Simulated scan of single mutants.
Amino acid sequence: MSADGTARPTLLLVHGAWHGSWCWEKLTPVLNAEGWTTRTVDLPSAGSGARVRDDARVVLQALARIDGPVVVVAHSYGGVPVTQAVADAANVSHLVYLAAYQLDIGESLLSHHGAPTPADPGGFQPVPPHPVPLFYADAPAADAKAAAGRLVPQSTRSFSDMLTAAGWHTVPSTYVVCEQDQALPPDDQERLALRSGSVHRIASGHSPFLSMPGEFAGLLAGIASGSAG
């Protein structure tokens, strides 16, 4: 329960490209110890040829299994299917975009970067060749190496599919800028964050749930409880 006696929202954590629900394993125990209920999903585009709509369906199914309000936390690519899904969800009270793609209708991850849609969008985007400095530069070396070893190829279609809905137009949102990010440049994050109602910044690389789970959990708790905007 929150300080005013109302039920706390559930936190639904949605991972980014190449990752899986395993990436939250350092964060969820911290949140759970503070009384927060957490849920995670595995997006099918990581490891299969699934599309944004398939990922969005998984998010919607997870939301349907949760009673009460939900704060959805989307990391990186996860912002794309979350944005699509939340437009059709009734129980989402807040969106948190963590170094994430807060796209609008008619945009795709590739179009955001000015890249053309591939002539043959089938197939996979391989795991980046140097994932540790890209994703986990400030994480403990052993944790970073272990995480890099769990990455899988990502569906190319998930990067080229355009959104047909954008839930942040009707659901309040907060953007968390990772100021030392090597994967999605902070300047790009700042531009995306203009679409959110509030912005917070954390002195981390792309994956603060791995590099500073305690500090990030505190920030998330503040956002979800309304005390951090």
Rank of each mutant, 00 (worst) to 15 (best):
A139Y: 10
G122T: 15
V52F: 06
R65A: 15
T117S: 07
P118G: 09
T117G: 05
L103P: 08
L98I: 04
L63A: 05
A50Q: 02
D67Q: 13
T83L: 13
A99E: 00
A89H: 08
Q84M: 09
A87G: 10
L103V: 07
V80R: 10
L63Q: 06
G68R: 12
V70C: 09
T117C: 02
E107D: 13
A50D: 00
I66A: 11
V82I: 13
A115N: 11
A146I: 12
N91G: 08
S108E: 12
A64W: 03
V96I: 10
I66K: 02
P44T: 04
L60H: 11
G114V: 12
P133Y: 00
A144V: 12
V92H: 09
V73N: 03
G106S: 13
D55P: 03
V92R: 07
D143S: 14
D67N: 13
V59G: 03
Q125G: 10
Y77H: 14
L60D: 12
V96E: 00
D104Q: 13
H130S: 14
V132H: 03
S76V: 08
P121W: 01
H130D: 15
V82H: 12
E107C: 05
V92Y: 09
G114P: 13
A50T: 02
P133D: 04
V59L: 01
G114F: 08
T40H: 05
P81F: 15
I105G: 06
A144T: 14
V70A: 11
P129D: 15
I66L: 09
R57K: 15
P133F: 07
R51P: 01
P126K: 04
L110F: 15
Y77A: 07
P121D: 04
P133W: 04
T117F: 00
Y101H: 07
R51L: 05
A62L: 04
I66R: 03
R57C: 01
P118A: 12
A85M: 13
V70N: 11
H130G: 01
A56L: 09
G68I: 13
H75N: 14
A119R: 14
A142V: 15
Y77C: 07
D54G: 13
D143N: 12
V58A: 00
A46C: 08
V59E: 00
G78S: 07
V86L: 02
V127T: 03
P129K: 07
V80D: 11
T117D: 08
Y77M: 08
P126L: 09
L98H: 05
A64Q: 14
S108L: 14
S93C: 15
R53H: 08
A139M: 11
Q102R: 01
F124G: 08
A62Y: 03
S76H: 11
G79F: 11
